[in-house]
Simulated assay, not measured.
Amino acid sequence: MTLPPTTEATGDRVRLPLRAGLEGLEPYGAPQLDVPVLLNVNENPYPPSDAVVADIADAVAKAAHGLNRYPDRDFAELRSELAEYLRAESGVSLRPEQIWAANGSNEVMLHLLQAFGGTGRTVLSFAPTYSMYPEYARDTLTGWVTGRREQDFTLDVDHVRAQIAEHRPAVILLASPNNPTGTALDLATIEAVCEAAAESGPTGPDGAPTASVVVVDEAYGEFRREGTPSALTVLDRYPHLAVSRTMSKAFGMAGLRLGYLAAARELIDYLRVVRLPYHLSAVTQAAALAALRHRAELMSQVASLRAERDALVDWLRGHGLRVAESDANFVLFGLFDDRHQVWNGLLERGVLIREVGPEGWLRVSVGTPQETAAFKAALEEVLGW
């Protein structure tokens, strides 16, 4: 057998030409265990109703009749409906051409770094934050740099400005609410970052500076507390700002895999360059459109989850634990000398949460009242309350 020059045979084995930097790495993923109470991956605990399921099934069946044809490459109808949803949810009017969508917000982020990152460029974020961000950078051969968050997990604007000036990033990734802490950014901070990023990007072919693309990841945006505005409200002032959302969380459609983004049309057009042809299947488009027709029903669960979250925060604090302020559908709490022991004790009692974030902290998703009660009872046993 003749092998390519970048592989070598050892006995009956072949060494594959793995890209440098990927050696020994494991695929991303939270533990998937079969236990009664799953509160580890920030899912909406309420499944879609029979009416929603029936509408999605009907829409998919109709789409199936045309599966011999490629889907709408630019999914015009879906972009229009997503724009209408954002108008209703955030009060911001957007044109369909300002909307982009992909297979989960993961692929949206990948498109952003494919378009604006790459060899010799840098993406900047502030830790602790979403653990997938450095993987997006790695997969697009983009440098990864992190600044710090404060003790309360907010951002110090002067520190952010200094990091931007030092690293001149092509992309700045800001999660709001932040994962795993639940911390939302105020508009003043977002505006300050956008102002600092206006000419802080890599030098262009003509030698002139470019902007850094500021991405505000609002995957959990619908869960924000009253009075916490969306970054969408300043989108029209900053052509280098992009705001991403998902149907996985508030919509309870994690299995659908539909993420989307709002930005200036020019920015969206650059994402269209790097996306694979027909990346959103006809089935995905049909199911997403059907779900959006039921947005009032699906979103009605958000208020109850917010209330459940706030009550859980009060309960944890009432027992003397430290709890990060949360505008998401999860709560970061601690501090524990041995957080793994607490995590494992909960698991032994049938409750799976997430061992993530800074040392000593644990994260629990907001579940149904019954799931929250099971979590509380298990935690009381583990901590001997």
Results as ranks from 00 to 15, higher is better:
198 A>H: 08
192 A>D: 01
80 S>E: 15
100 W>E: 13
214 V>D: 01
128 P>S: 04
109 M>Q: 12
197 A>K: 02
217 D>M: 12
132 M>W: 11
211 A>I: 06
140 T>D: 00
212 S>V: 02
77 E>I: 10
194 C>I: 08
159 H>M: 09
192 A>T: 07
165 A>I: 09
78 L>C: 04
93 S>Y: 10
165 A>S: 13
190 I>G: 00
101 A>I: 04
147 G>Q: 05
177 P>G: 01
91 G>W: 10
207 G>F: 01
184 A>S: 15
184 A>H: 07
100 W>V: 03
124 L>R: 10
88 A>K: 11
131 S>I: 07
127 A>T: 02
91 G>L: 08
75 F>R: 05
196 A>P: 08
143 G>I: 03
110 L>Y: 11
190 I>T: 09
88 A>P: 01
118 G>A: 07
122 T>V: 15
100 W>R: 08
177 P>C: 02
199 E>H: 13
203 T>G: 13
219 A>S: 15
215 V>G: 04
97 E>F: 01
129 T>M: 03
103 N>H: 11
101 A>D: 09
118 G>Y: 05
121 R>E: 12
115 A>N: 06
201 G>A: 08
100 W>Y: 15
142 T>G: 00
77 E>F: 05
164 I>P: 00
167 H>R: 13
117 G>C: 03
212 S>L: 05
147 G>D: 10
212 S>T: 11
198 A>R: 12
157 V>W: 09
141 L>N: 14
191 E>Q: 12
117 G>Q: 05
112 L>A: 03
131 S>N: 09
105 S>Q: 12
164 I>Y: 00
183 T>K: 14
124 L>P: 01
91 G>K: 11
161 R>E: 10
90 S>Y: 12
216 V>A: 04
207 G>N: 13
79 R>P: 01
201 G>W: 00
174 L>M: 11
88 A>Y: 09
